[in-house]
Design a protein around this nucleic acid. Structure first.
Length: 186
DNA sequence: CGCCTTTGACCGGCGC
DNA sequence: GCGCCGGTCAAAGGCG
């Protein structure tokens, strides 16, 4: 979790109308923007989400916001010769993460995930869990990790983007956002 | 019965 | 070259 280029803070958006839409949008757009220039496009998007109306939440000194979006562009080092790897499986996919103040680490975002691994993280007493989207042909991955520093914070890192639509009701993004708000209130 | 979690093994990259 | 580390595989078992 060191090489993330930028951190966005996102307090709960009160307008639920934009919620699931923006999450989808962010997903795809971010993917594109990362090809060329790093995080600027994403930043713009976040502003589009019409966010910052920070509820004066009671956060303990260190953390100033309850939810923060972290966007990682992986190390682009060897992408000089883009044709180097024929299989392009080697291409580092853009990842983006957000951390949530929550006591449950299963954040249902509307997709179906299958857990395929769990590893201990060093300097962290909590393990990290690896999930994969079970939709056929969609190999989006995510990993969920809890901070040992503050076990109330769960970091979810997504990798890749879904090539399909959500299987559950699309209102689910609203639900999760609502959940986030609820947990944030504590 | 199908889908999921669990868990140790395995593997590739990287630093020494 | 070797060992560590992070990520993935796959067999076995659980659960609705």
């Amino acid at each position: 979790m060191d090489n993330y280029s930028s951190i966005f803070s996102c307090s709960s958006s009160s307008t639920s109308s934009a919620s699931h839409l923006s999450l989808n949008m962010v997903n795809s757009q971010a993917y594109h923007e990362f090809q060329g220039d790093k995080a600027n496009g994403f930043l713009g998007l976040m502003t589009n989400m019409g966010v910052p109306n920070s509820e004066a939440n009671n956060n303990n000194g260190g953390v100033s916001q309850s939810k923060s979006f972290v966007v990682g562009t992986e190390i682009n080092d060897e992408m000089k010769s883009s044709e180097k790897k024929k299989g392009e499986k080697k291409i580092r996919k853009p990842r983006f993460a957000f951390q949530t103040r929550s006591h449950v680490d299963i954040l249902d975002d509307g997709y179906r995930w299958r857990k395929y691994g769990q590893k201990a993280v060093k300097n962290n007493k909590f393990p990290r869990s690896y999930y994969r989207c079970t939709h056929q042909g969609c190999n989006v991955k995510k990993q969920v990790q809890r901070l040992s520093k503050d076990e109330g914070i769960v970091v979810t890192t997504y990798e890749g983007m879904h090539s399909h639509s959500i299987e559950k009701s699309t209102d689910n993004f609203e639900h999760i956002l609502n959940q986030m708000q609820i947990y944030t209130a504590f």
